[in-house]
């Protein structure tokens, strides 16, 4: 397949599944890593793997896997960044209570480990446990157990 056709196909895919990339990125930003950094890293790694993606899994599963692998393993010394592309989203202004709860979640997930965040995100995204186990490299039983512990941990963190 010509590179131009591949690029067009890839852009269509990012357009369709860009929200997954955004959500995964948003779970892993911190004072050293911006949303733009993480988003771009994920897009680069998706592009790198795209030519060999043969549809063995559905697109969304593949994207979750690459995106989470990117974020969980991300390490870059501050001065060595490629020029990033600004992707500031203009979120709708939402002062509802639901929005406060989601904001609280983001504050709490900073206290979780990288693997725990991945589990929480996949759970919130309502992925089947079998799929979560496949992406994470865990057994289904282990996924269930870990999620129960994380739920308890978040409750305790929230109460403090």
């Amino acid at each position: 397949m010509e590179k131009r056709d591949l690029e067009k196909e890839f852009l269509d895919m990012v357009r369709q599944y860009g929200r997954i990339i955004y959500k995964v990125s948003s779970f892993y930003i911190d004072e050293k890593t911006s949303l733009e950094d993480m988003y771009q890293e994920i897009v680069l790694n998706l592009w790198k793997s795209y030519p060999s993606f043969r549809g063995e899994s559905i697109h969304s599963t593949w994207i979750y896997r690459v995106a989470l692998n990117t974020c969980v393993s991300y390490y870059r010394k501050e001065k060595r960044r490629p020029s990033f592309v600004d992707i500031t989203y203009v979120a709708e202004k939402d002062d509802s209570e639901n929005s406060d709860i989601v904001r609280e979640l983001y504050a709490l997930i900073n206290g979780l480990g990288k693997m725990e965040r991945a589990l929480v995100l996949l759970y919130l995204e309502d992925r089947p446990q079998k799929e979560i186990a496949e992406i994470m490299g865990m057994t289904v039983t282990n996924v269930s157990t870990r999620l129960a512990r994380i739920k308890e941990k978040l409750k305790q963190m929230s109460n403090h």
Partner: peptide, 14 residues
Amino acid sequence: VKKIWQEADSLKEQ
């Protein structure tokens, strides 16, 4: 939170 996450889309971009 999961219910809220699924229903109310606070990450909706314009």
